[in-house]
């Protein structure tokens, strides 16, 4: 305790004609158990009410506050200042459209992803309110939930070498989403159907295997495994298609 923290924060408000992109320095006395949520709100309330950033749950559950903290994409709310040096540089996530300062537009990006991956259960079964639910093995339910834990913070996209180079790359969050439906017995899509979505260079074959996604995922999703799983599955599907099977 007792440190004076120096924040270097990216500033640019696209809606303000007088604004130009620049870095701005702030100082703040560190307090016990301070997180970037506490720090940024204090900066806004006490020093510059024009500062733009996003928080929602402030508990690491909702994924609103992804930003680049000293060079690494992470959730600001669960970043404790005591784990950082005295100088803290904050930048908005790359790849996504800038809303202002540290805020980026993940909302539109992810809604487009839902459509691109058809992020829903495909089934021809009708729900019958009078019937008992279809049974499912608890282990399968837990596997699905494991992949469903993605909070769509965008950190894996911002950290992805391919996504930085080509803006049509689906990215780990989208590929993980597809994997979630692949293992769900309720979804009737076949490997061929999934191949249509991700069996190409903006899908699974675009991944260069750099795996920053795995390193930085704030929810510790097993992204490396999912990328490998899909690559094998889609590779086999491609061979089968080539052989006319």
């Amino acid at each position: 305790m007792g440190r004076t923290l120096k924040f270097d924060i990216f500033r640019y408000n696209p809606e303000d004609p007088a604004s130009t992109p620049h870095m701005q320095a702030f100082t703040l006395e560190e307090t016990e158990n301070m997180t970037l949520f506490i720090a940024l709100n204090r900066l806004r309330e006490e020093q510059d009410p024009g500062l733009i950033f996003d928080f929602c749950c402030r508990a690491g559950i909702c994924g609103s506050c992804g930003m680049v903290v000293n060079g690494r994409p992470r959730l600001a709310c669960q970043t404790k200042t005591k784990d950082l040096p005295e100088t803290i540089t904050l930048l908005p996530l790359p790849v996504f459209k800038l809303v202002g300062d540290l805020s980026v537009d993940t909302g539109v990006w992810f809604r487009e992803m839902y459509q691109a991956t058809e992020s829903w259960i495909h089934t021809n079964k009708q729900f019958d309110p009078a019937q008992e639910e279809e049974r499912m093995d608890n282990a399968v339910a837990e596997q699905i939930y494991e992949l469903e834990r993605c909070v769509e913070c965008g950190c894996c996209i911002a950290a992805c070498g391919t996504a930085r180079m080509r803006d049509d790359f689906l990215g780990a969050a989208a590929l993980n989403r597809v994997a979630r439906f692949v293992i769900d017995p309720r979804d009737q899509r076949t490997d061929k159907d999934y191949f249509e979505i991700i069996g190409n260079d903006y899908g699974i074959f675009g991944c260069m295997g750099l795996l920053a996604c795995e390193d930085i995922c704030p929810k510790n999703l097993p992204l490396q495994n999912q990328l490998g799983f899909l690559r094998r599955k889609m590779g086999i599907t491609a061979i089968k298609q080539f052989l006319g099977k």
């Binding site: 309110p129 639910e133 279809e134 608890n138 339910a141 309720r186």
Partner: peptide, 18 residues
């Protein structure tokens, strides 16, 4: 109870009886 079953049909991975 009907709504929980509907959600299961729509895709919620409810924990199940072991």
């Amino acid at each position: 109870p009907i709504e929980m079953r509907r959600l299961a049909h729509w895709g919620v991975p409810w924990n199940r009886v072991v």
